[in-house]
Simulated scan of single mutants.
Amino acid sequence: MYSSYYQSPLGILRITATDTYIKEIHFCRDEEMPASFEPATLTPLLQLCTEQLIGYFQGVRRIFELPVHQEGTPFQQKVWTELTAIPFGKTISYLDLARKLGDPKVIRAAATTNGKNKIAIIVPCHRIIGSNREMVGYAAGIWRKKWLLQHELKIAHGVQTLF
């Protein structure tokens, strides 16, 4: 495992990878911050991920082209795959997600799995909103979710405010 840090507009992201895939992108809380940011030797994959995140935040990248993997049940894998199918600048509700999974009754399980996503931004769990179009649930904070959605909407459609 290799880790690096990227200072995003929303705070520091810790990127964890193996030689072959991105395993985690996590918004660091203050208590998770390293004592110092000594220059790390970036693996090619960590460098590529950082470059793509920079492009995303600069508004020039809408799709990530990175190998990702996170441990999970077949159901969880299916949920995370559905998340990656949500287009940049679009949102769907938790109910819509459950329907895409083939059963509206799995809404709670889908929401729980969405919350367990460890690859922020690239597996875009921030694109899931409440059925009433309200901002609900985001482990990194609703303010970050709102920022990400407004950023994408602005880039995709030139719209200034979503919520």
Rank of each mutant, 00 (worst) to 15 (best):
D30F: 09
A120G: 11
L46Q: 07
H126V: 04
P44M: 00
L83P: 13
W143R: 15
T91V: 15
C49L: 01
L101N: 02
L101M: 13
N132K: 10
S4M: 07
I15H: 05
H69L: 05
M135Q: 07
E24Q: 13
A40V: 11
F27M: 14
A98K: 02
R133I: 14
I122W: 07
H157Y: 08
P87C: 07
R29T: 13
P34C: 04
D103I: 10
Q77I: 01
G11P: 05
G72D: 00
A111K: 12
I54S: 05
N117V: 15
P39N: 13
K145W: 05
Q52C: 05
T73Q: 03
S36C: 08
P124E: 08
I15M: 09
K23G: 15
T18A: 11
P104R: 03
Q58W: 01
L149N: 06
A85Q: 14
R133E: 05
P34K: 10
I142L: 07
Q47M: 06
G158H: 11
N132C: 07
D103H: 14
D103K: 11
I142H: 08
C125F: 09
L83R: 15
K116Y: 11
R99C: 13
N132G: 08
I119W: 03
R144T: 11
H151T: 04
K116Q: 14
T18F: 09
E51M: 04
T84P: 00
M1S: 15
E82R: 11
P124F: 01
L13M: 09
I54A: 05
L101I: 11
D19L: 12
G11M: 02
E31R: 15
L153Y: 00
H126E: 12
T81I: 10
F37Q: 00
T41I: 10
A120R: 13
L162W: 02
I15Q: 05
F75V: 00
V79G: 06
S3V: 13
Q58E: 08
L46P: 00
R133Q: 05
V159C: 06
Q160W: 08
M135Y: 10
T16H: 09
A40H: 10
R29W: 04
A35W: 02
K105S: 14
M1I: 15
A140E: 07
Y21G: 12
L53A: 01
A40R: 13
E134Q: 10
G72E: 01
G102W: 12
L42H: 05
T73L: 01
I119P: 04
V123P: 02
K23A: 13
L66A: 03
P9A: 00
L13C: 03
L149Y: 04
H151D: 06
G158Q: 07
G130W: 00
M135G: 11
F27K: 02
A156T: 07
V159I: 08
F37I: 03
K154H: 04
N114L: 10
A110I: 10
G55H: 07
P124N: 07
I129L: 08
H157F: 09
K145Y: 00
K100Y: 13
R99L: 04
L53Y: 07
A140L: 01
H126K: 05
H69M: 10
E32V: 12
E31P: 11
I142V: 04
T112S: 12
Y2P: 06
L101R: 08
I12G: 00
